[in-house]
Amino acid sequence: MTDETQWLGQRFEDHRAHLTAVAYRMLGSASEADDAVQQAWLRLDRADTAGVRNLRNWLTAVVAHICLDILRARKARREELVGALPADLPIVPADTVDPEQEAVMADSVGLALLVVLDTLTPAERLTFVLHDLFDLPYAELAPILGRTPAAAAQLAVRARRRVRGTSIVDTDRSIADERAVVDAFLMAAHAGDFDALIAVLDPNVELHADGVAVPSGQPVRMHGARRVTASALMFSARARHTRPALIDGHVGLVVAPNGILDCLLAFTITDHRITTIDIIADPQRLATISLAVPDMTQLPRPEA
């Protein structure tokens, strides 16, 4: 290894954490993020960087290009796989990364945010991640997308609305009230607290689960607080993979181990109690649902 290559390699390592953070938020997969960063190093090693004034931004743009290509290829594969289903349908990537590493990274980004980002187009996702999460100016985003800065700004507005759920939230309802009830349900389920679950459920609560959500493959219907509570306690092991999200404008729960969508829990809430729980795992149903992050102020900001 030449002194120049060694020097360049050290400068690259100085930015590796930042590049990995960008790639993971773009791709939602630790193994794909690592591959994208490694490809960026190979391009850097072959490139003439004599005229590069800001290596961090240059590398960010390279990683963004690589991630955009991966997202577009992923979307094309989905169209082939799901046929008539919407191409936005989240699917599980075939990763071989350490599950613990994936879980830590997913939690640092926000499980619900990862799932919502997966519903954006590749261009929307890149624009939202680089501008809203990493503060990259539109003027630097535009060349990556092959668009004008104004067009990039419009993409960001559209992505931001979809992530926030601005277009689907009923302003006459109190999202905060729903969030309090759903948080209480999740906390009680996670703790395995029977009495706390009973307190948040209507005595005549109904639970519906589609066949995909149930090991037997048969849909389930259940009535009564005590029966539903018993089922919710069985859910406690998965509660750590669960986060609040807006489901068609109402506060519900996203179950996403390692940031990969498994199922949704949609609630009907009346007088501060849950009257119905709908567990949705069927891909065709999931594809028709609008998801958003309930509180943008709670989005984790990247440290690198």
Rank of each mutant, 00 (worst) to 15 (best):
D3W: 05
D3K: 14
F12I: 13
E13N: 15
H15T: 07
R16G: 03
L19Q: 02
V37C: 14
A40Q: 01
L42T: 15
L42E: 15
D45P: 00
R46Y: 11
A47G: 05
A47P: 05
V52H: 08
R53D: 11
V63Y: 05
C67R: 07
R74M: 04
K75T: 10
R78W: 01
E79I: 09
L85H: 09
L85S: 12
A87Y: 06
L89T: 12
P90N: 12
A94S: 13
A94W: 10
A94Y: 12
V97W: 02
E102Y: 01
V109K: 03
V115G: 00
P122N: 11
P122T: 07
A123I: 00
R125G: 05
T127C: 11
H131D: 12
H131A: 14
D132T: 10
F134W: 08
D135F: 06
L136N: 02
A139V: 13
G146E: 09
R147S: 13
R147C: 11
T148F: 04
T148H: 06
T148K: 11
A156P: 00
R160H: 12
R160A: 10
R161S: 08
V169D: 04
V169I: 13
D172V: 08
D172L: 07
A176R: 09
R179F: 05
V181T: 08
A184W: 06
A191F: 09
G192I: 05
D193H: 03
D202R: 06
D202Q: 07
V205N: 02
V205W: 00
E206I: 06
H208P: 00
A209D: 02
D210V: 01
D210L: 01
A213P: 05
A213E: 03
P215E: 06
S216F: 07
G217E: 04
R226N: 12
S231A: 13
F235I: 05
A237F: 14
A239T: 12
H241T: 09
I247W: 04
I247D: 08
V254S: 01
P257W: 05
D262T: 04
T270E: 14
I277F: 04
I277K: 00
I277Y: 02
D282H: 08
R285E: 07
A292I: 04
D295W: 08
T297N: 15
T297E: 13
P300Y: 10
P300F: 07
P302V: 12
A304H: 11
A304M: 07
